[in-house]
Amino acid sequence: MSPEMLELLWDALLETLLMVGVSSVLSALAGLPLGVLLHVTGRGQILENAPLNRVLGAVVNAGRSVPFIILLVAIIPFTRLVVGTSLGTAAAIVPLTVGAVPYVARLAEAALREVDHGLVEAAQSMGASPRQIVWKVLVPEAMPGLVAAFTITVVTLVGYSAMAGAVGGGGLGDLGIRYGYQRFQPDVMLAVVVVLVVLVQGLQSAGDRLAMRLDRRRVRQRQR
């Protein structure tokens, strides 16, 4: 592969990392509170509110049912409103974030549901407020699950980001399509796939390691 090609590959990697990195952080910032809200308004939970829970649930489900490639073009007006343009890497970050938020919310809700309700009751018996229960009990106890959920989201975003080429967002997927497929350079296609495989493997195992470190539910060998 030529040095020019390698440089293209490097730039594409950086674009992918930028898109995935920014949209991961933003979707976590929006999705986690939404997940918490979905959980605590659920049946038998600390802020049970059936109507709100149903509405939130419907919105989240609707968000998850739109195919990403359609979302990408469907929200172009919104994207333009937010970043001033509908083309380029920054413009791709908006639909990536919007697409990932409902995903994060559902995964976070599932992780929070794994927290034993007895712990919530124990906190209530100590006089904890709903806000304290969320921050002192639910989130810390669900942390391994939340990290695992976030890892899945990041990996999914790597896949979604391949479609960002459709709005000129660049990135590895775009490089693979334009050079590997349209210009018939199989070596570029192969290189893109290898980089993506290594990237996803790295992200997943880093997430797994972090989740494991945070998990205190099982006895583990004490270091010393």
Binding site: D116, G118, L119, E121, A122, Q124, S125, M126, G127, V137, P140, E141, M143, L214, R216, R217
Partner: peptide, 17 residues
């Protein structure tokens, strides 16, 4: 009022974290 009433449980309900 709950702060003046302690409670212990069958399954302890300790925070694992």
């Amino acid at each position: 009022a709950r702060r003046r009433i302690g409670m212990i449980f069958q399954h302890f309900n300790l925070l694992s974290s």
